[in-house]
C-alpha cells in the first residue's frame, strides 16, 4: 500500500467564479449593466425593483431575474409592472449560483440595458457567490435594526451599494441612520449609500441617476 500527499490548491468556488466571469464578459460585451440584489427576507428587494421598473420602463430596456426558494410570485409582481422577468426557484438552496443565471441568460433580450438579479432572501450565503454582476447592492430595511452591518459583514464588504429601505418607518423605530452609515463605511469605505422608501419614493431618483451613470461607465469602457 502506497500513500501520497498531493498539494491541490483549488478554489472551492472556482467553478462558480469561472461561470460568473464568462457571464460578466458576455453581459459587458452586450452593454448590459447587471445588478445583483442581496438582503435578508422581506427587506424590500422586489418592492425596490417594482419602483425602479416604473421609473425605467419607458426610457430603458430592463429585465429581471428573480431568485426564490419557491413560487413565481416575485416574477409576477415585476411582470405586472410591464417588465420581463424570469423566476429561478432553487427548491431549497439558500442562494443563487452562476450556473443558474447561465441557464436563464439566453432568454434575456440581448438589447437589454439593465439586468437586475434578485437573490434569495438571505444576508449570508449569497455573498459568497458571484453571478457575473457588475454591481452588487445590499439592502437593509429599517425594521431589521441598525446593528446588522457588523453582524453580517460579508454582504457589506462585498457590495458596491448599500440601499437603506423602508425609511418611511423611521419615526416608529429606534434606528440610528447615521450609525448604520458610519458602521457600513467602516466595513467598506467604497460603499455608495442610498436612503430610500418604496412607499414615499424617497431616494429613488438619486438611485436611478446612479444606475444610468453606472451604465454609461460600462458602455464607455467597452465602446
Amino acid at each position: 500500500m502506497a500513500t501520497k500527499d498531493v498539494i491541490v490548491l483549488a478554489d472551492l468556488l472556482g467553478t462558480n467564479k469561472k461561470i460568473a466571469s464568462d457571464i460578466r464578459t458576455e453581459l459587458e460585451r452586450r452593454g448590459i449593466l447587471a445588478v445583483n440584489l442581496l438582503s435578508s427576507p422581506g427587506a424590500g428587494k422586489t418592492s425596490l425593483l417594482e419602483q425602479i421598473a416604473v421609473r425605467l420602463r419607458d426610457t430603458a430596456k430592463m429585465a429581471v431575474i428573480e431568485g426564490d426558494i419557491e413560487t413565481e410570485r416575485d416574477a409576477e409582481r415585476i411582470r405586472a409592472r410591464g417588465v420581463p422577468a424570469w423566476q429561478i426557484t432553487t427548491g431549497g438552496a439558500c442562494h443563487l449560483e452562476a450556473k443558474m443565471i447561465a441557464r436563464v441568460l439566453p432568454q434575456v433580450p440581448p438589447e437589454s440595458e439593465f439586468l437586475f438579479i434578485e437573490n434569495v432572501g438571505n444576508l449570508v450565503c449569497p455573498a459568497s457567490y458571484e453571478l457575473g454582476e457588475r454591481l452588487r447592492f445590499v439592502l437593509l430595511s429599517t425594521p431589521e435594526g441598525d446593528d446588522k452591518p457588523k453582524k453580517y459583514p460579508k454582504a457589506f464588504t462585498t457590495s458596491d451599494v448599500l440601499v437603506l429601505t423602508k425609511v418611511d418607518l423611521l419615526p416608529y423605530l429606534p434606528f440610528d441612520l447615521e450609525k448604520v452609515k458610519a458602521e457600513a463605511l467602516e466595513l467598506n469605505p467604497r460603499l455608495q449609500i442610498f436612503v430610500t422608501s418604496a412607499v414615499t419614493g424617497q431616494g429613488l431618483d438619486e438611485l436611478i441617476a446612479f444606475l444610468w451613470r453606472a451604465r454609461r461607465d460600462l458602455t464607455a469602457r467597452h465602446a
Binding site: 500527499d5 498539494i7 491541490v8
Partner: peptide
Amino acid sequence: SPDLEILQGTEMILERIELESDDA
C-alpha cells in the same frame, strides 16, 4: 486610508489531500 488590499482571509481553498493506493 480606505484604500486597502486584502492579502488573505477571504479564501476558500482545498490545499492538500492524502491518498492511498493498493498497488505498489
